[in-house]
């Protein structure tokens, strides 16, 4: 139970960080001006990367987030039903 609980906490923190990176990558270009105005696929880097990450990058993160948190729910449910069954038997 302890490891499932820890996994829940870690997933929440790590996915929050990944989501924030996807939605706020513009901050990187404010903090490091040298990264600006490098042309990527025809757009300046400070525009191309935040727009692409804010949609396509975010899609990748949420797909993984949905998969792993669904699995975690199943794990909690299995653990809970195992405990209930063993108590009933005991």
């Amino acid at each position: 139970m302890n490891s499932t609980y820890k996994k829940e906490i870690w997933y929440t923190l790590v996915f929050s960080l990944l989501l924030l990176i996807c939605g706020h990558s513009g901050l990187l270009f404010v903090a490091v001006p040298g990264l600006r105005d490098i042309m990527i696929m025809g757009f300046p880097s400070q525009y191309c990367i935040p727009v692409a990450l804010g949609w396509l990058g975010l899609m990748v993160v949420v797909v993984i987030q949905a998969k792993l948190t669904n699995d975690l729910d199943d794990e909690i449910e299995a653990l809970t039903s195992t405990n209930t069954t063993s108590k009933t038997k005991g």
Binding site: S16, G26, Y47, L58, V61
Partner: peptide
């Protein structure tokens, strides 16, 4: 111009963050 684009991009985080932190 572009600063407003940055402001709008992050709104897409709303539902994923709500789902992660308290939606479910």
């Amino acid at each position: 111009k572009v600063p407003f684009v940055y402001m709008w991009i992050q709104f897409a985080l709303s539902i994923p963050l709500i789902t992660l932190w308290y939606g479910t």
